[in-house]
């Protein structure tokens, strides 16, 4: 039996706890992270109900994927495989001729992979410096593809802006897929860097992405104005 003092402490703790803290404690308890429930009837009741709810949700049986969908997937696999085989058959006659040139290439010029070097870097400063120094190099299509993906994968906005500054030199090699980044990016400075590239390119092709961006809820007003400005120049 709790002493009056202990009860008062529990009530005080519970009273002072805000909803966020309550929810956090609740999920910790439900997930088994915290073994001991807060000594409070409301908390215990809620935890019991939510646990039951989760159990019921997990019990809902999974619907099977229909066989026609499986067939569709198999067709896509076949298409992907034959695409690869066609491309191999296409280049085979030239392979022998190219092989000797490649051997010379690998003997006299060290194989460089910017991406593999970049993946070894740990700090944001190292990455920034590395990306910026690529302005001195001639980038291949593979390099550009890697950098395009890096914009989606990278968290740091300064690194993304540096990548975009670099890629602005390769506008002609940037395709519609690149501009899909407009749909997923949320940092305003990165969005502006993307829009600056769109502005200099044939942006008629990206009208859909620009419209979607302009209509995005909660978008920074400067970014929206820029998108609208580009859309109006058609």
């Amino acid at each position: 039996m709790q002493s009056i003092k202990e009860v008062k402490e529990t009530i005080k703790k519970f009273w002072n706890m805000n909803e966020d803290q309550f929810d956090k404690e609740m999920m910790d308890y439900i997930d088994g992270v915290s073994k001991k429930a807060i000594d409070n009837e409301h908390f215990k009741e809620e935890a019991k109900e939510l646990r039951q709810l989760l159990s019921d949700l997990k019990d809902i049986p999974l619907k099977k994927v229909e066989t026609n969908i499986d067939e569709e997937f198999k067709r896509r696999i076949v298409k992907k495989t034959s695409k690869k085989q066609r491309s191999v058959r296409r280049i085979w006659p030239y392979f022998a001729a190219a092989a000797s040139i490649l051997i010379v290439f690998f003997i006299f010029i060290r194989d460089r992979s910017f991406e593999s070097d970049y993946q070894k870097l740990k700090t944001n400063t190292d990455k920034l410096g590395f990306i910026y120094n690529l302005n001195q190099e001639q980038l291949s299509s593979n390099d550009i593809n890697w950098l395009k993906n890096e914009i989606k994968n990278e968290n740091n906005p300064n690194i993304k802006v540096t990548i975009l500054d670099l890629l602005s030199n390769y506008e002609s090699k940037l395709d519609k897929e690149f501009f899909n980044a407009l749909e997923v990016e949320t940092t305003p400075t990165v969005l502006m860097a993307l829009l600056n590239i769109v502005e200099n390119s044939n942006h008629v092709e990206y009208e859909e992405e620009l419209l979607a961006l302009s209509e995005r809820k909660g978008l920074d007003i400067t970014v929206r104005q820029k998108a609208d400005e580009i859309l109006s120049i058609q």
Partner: peptide, 23 residues
């Protein structure tokens, strides 16, 4: 969701509580 880990916990809890209420 581009939110903090703590907020992920909170949002899961709130969604569950809302679902419970709807039921």
């Amino acid at each position: 969701e581009n939110i903090s880990v703590n907020n992920a916990r909170i949002l899961v809890c709130r969604a569950l509580k809302k679902l419970k209420k709807l039921l």
